[in-house]
Amino acid sequence: MSTQFEIQGLKSSIEGKEILKGIDLQIKGGEVHAIMGPNGTGKSTLASALMGHPKYEVTDGSVTLNGEDVLEMGVDERARAGLFLAMQYPSEITGVTNADFLRSAINARRGEGNEISLIKFVRQMEGKMKELEMNPEFMHRYLNEGFSGGEKKRNEILQMMLLEPKLVILDEIDSGLDIDALRIVAEGVNAMRSEDRGFLIITHYQRLLNYITPDFVHVMMQGRIVKSGGPELAHRLEAEGYDWVKEELGIVDETVGQA
């Protein structure tokens, strides 16, 4: 079955402040959706609410992945069901090596009695790290500890590649990357594009979309999707900025929750 991801009327609050004011979005396997928007408009909140971050309370709406109720699931269950979020600010965890972490994550998916053999895992991890031009020593480094911004982003992509999710959310994966790293990360994402995998790419720059061509582009303001279109919308935003969108829609302050 090809992947079908549906968000309907999703509202979410943080510390009692409503940030998401009703999001509707459908992503099918094979599609790449981009969400663009200035800072503070609710993009990361959407990503966190979908992944189930405990601070983000969902107050209304539904989210389903292949018909299954995502909002009913715990964070780990969502991941095992096929959701993946490359985070804007990945955590650093002392004492847990990248390899141990990833092996635990893969085995959590495979279930008890069906664990991946160490040798097979190491081979896979080494292979993907090579594709991402990562220094092999990052395998045994503590998770994200002492990684530069760009190294953390590559490490997020590495996890995506090894976990083979059905629905990938990339939150500002391009921030902190130089052009070379951006190309490598984009190639990694493109290599993962397939009929049964959907992508939701969050960015506030268009430049990533020069490397990963989206099928749909959505603009987020004030905790809502205020405009949708094709790749040409991204180009126009790149050329003209967001002011014309605000003018068209009569929006003065595009941010949300910053009373």
Partner: peptide
């Protein structure tokens, strides 16, 4: 946040 990060990769709490 660390627990959330690990869980977001499918690892149980």
């Amino acid at each position: 946040d660390q627990v959330y990060y690990l869980m977001s990769r499918g690892i149980s709490r």
